[in-house]
Amino acid sequence: MASAPKPRVKVPKTASAGEVIVIKTLISHEMESGQRKDKDGNPIPRKIINKFSCVFNGQPVFSCDLDPAVSANPYFEFSARVPESGTFTFTWVDDDGSVYTDEQSIKVE
């Protein structure tokens, strides 16, 4: 899993108007804490995902500020109220400025 961070999200395909659904997200990332040292005793610099956010049709739903104590391959489970059909956009921000995103649409029936 040393390749580029891969996000995966689990969102139900449909919901009824106003229903509160559960969303799960995972992204492959080493979350280098900055606490480890290499073979020569030099500290390995911190490099983590420091922010995760979920937005629905432009409205913020849930976000998390991550610190190095979050495990590698950060996993989140949270809920979202679904007022209407639309798209969830998920964003992960790396210490190095890289931004990873994923999207899932949902249909209200």
Binding site: Q35, F56, Q59, A69, V70, P74, F78, S79
Partner: peptide, 30 residues
């Protein structure tokens, strides 16, 4: 927070009216 880690901060969850419920799960290092 984790009171016995090298640093105590772990994560901060931010909720909104769109959250539906103030509940969240994650995995942490101890």
């Amino acid at each position: 927070l984790a009171d016995g880690n090298p640093r105590p901060e772990v994560a901060t969850f931010h909720f909104t009216a769109m959250s539906g419920s103030a509940a969240a799960t994650t995995r942490m290092r101890l």
